[in-house]
């Protein structure tokens, strides 16, 4: 070990020590001080009842399958619609001006309107026009609402990615005699998509949580199931169950996104 390495090792030991000490102190404060509060037993009974936790967990996990299913079929649709909207917004040809306008309106509207309103409007409104069962299912139209909203965000992220590809790349492709669509498909998009993977991972994590909003129009997913238990048992522990289940999914996803983002930053520098 040379002089600098020794110094850095010392520094590292110090920072680990400080981090560990402060974490332990904080946890100790929570574990020791909070139960000393006069209302703790009441709060514990309402939010952290082990009995309620175990009793509700199986049904809560079952309800979480609904979240996963909606998430699973929404994601590819969002990718497709988002890509289409991004391409519509990025088209250069003057003949496709209406497409560009349509793409812009789509993106502005669905990014500007609260997700909940879109879900109500499409989830109740479209079936209200008189669609027969099963085509009026809240699962279908709730999904449509989520897909429209998230596609608008994804489209903007993708368009940012497309714009970030240096114009020389396009010129290089065009000068080889490739068509505009080939240039987009083989040269610009692959680079753009790679650059926006981390941003889109964040959208996926947000989507995973927003799937729960479909419960407003009927589907009984995990948050709704928690609400039902809350009412029946007059206890908030089921929400803690839901939080634990969500964290079990989103924390690894977030870590993975950070990892991708760091790797990309390393590659750039």
């Amino acid at each position: 070990m040379n002089r600098r390495e020794k110094y850095e090792a010392r520094q590292r030991r110090w920072s680990i020590l400080i981090a560990a000490a402060s974490t332990i102190a904080t946890l100790a404060a929570i574990v020791i001080l909070v139960p000393m509060a006069p209302g703790w037993s009441r709060v514990q009974q309402s939010f952290f009842s082990g009995e309620v936790f175990l009793k509700t967990l199986p049904k809560m996990l079952e309800a979480f399958l609904v979240d996963i299913a909606i998430f699973a079929w929404s994601t590819p649709l969002i990718a497709i619609v988002g890509l289409a909207a991004a391409l519509a917004r990025s088209t250069r040809s003057p003949g496709l001006f209406p497409l560009r306008v349509f793409g812009t309106i789509f993106v502005d509207v669905f990014r500007g309107v609260p997700v909940v309103l879109v879900i109500y409007l499409i989830g109740f409104g479209v079936p209200g026009l008189g669609l027969p069962r099963p085509w009026n299912s809240p699962y279908i139209w709730g999904t449509v609402a989520l897909v429209l909203t998230y596609s608008a965000y994804v489209a903007e992220i993708l368009r940012g990615g497309i714009d970030s590809v240096h114009p020389s790349q396009r010129a290089a492709g065009i000068s080889l005699g490739l068509s505009e669509s080939d240039v987009m498909r083989y040269i610009v998009l692959p680079q753009a998509v790679r650059r926006v993977v981390p941003a889109n991972m964040n959208m996926l994590i947000a989507l995973q949580k927003d799937v729960a909003l479909l419960s407003f129009i009927g589907p009984v997913e995990i948050l709704r199931q928690a609400g039902v238990y809350k009412s029946l048992l007059a206890n908030f522990t089921p929400y803690v169950v839901a939080a634990v289940v969500f964290l079990a999914v989103t924390v690894p996803a977030t870590r993975y996104t950070d990892y991708l983002m760091n790797r990309q930053n390393d590659a750039r520098s």
């Binding site: 027969p132 809240p138 129009i217 709704r224």
Partner: peptide
């Protein structure tokens, strides 16, 4: 079939109007 659940009476009646329940 499993019932669909809503936040309040207004949403239940809206779902009835749109034929979902």
């Amino acid at each position: 079939s499993d019932p669909l659940l809503y936040d309040d009476n207004a949403n239940v009646t809206e779902a009835m109007k749109s034929g979902q329940i």
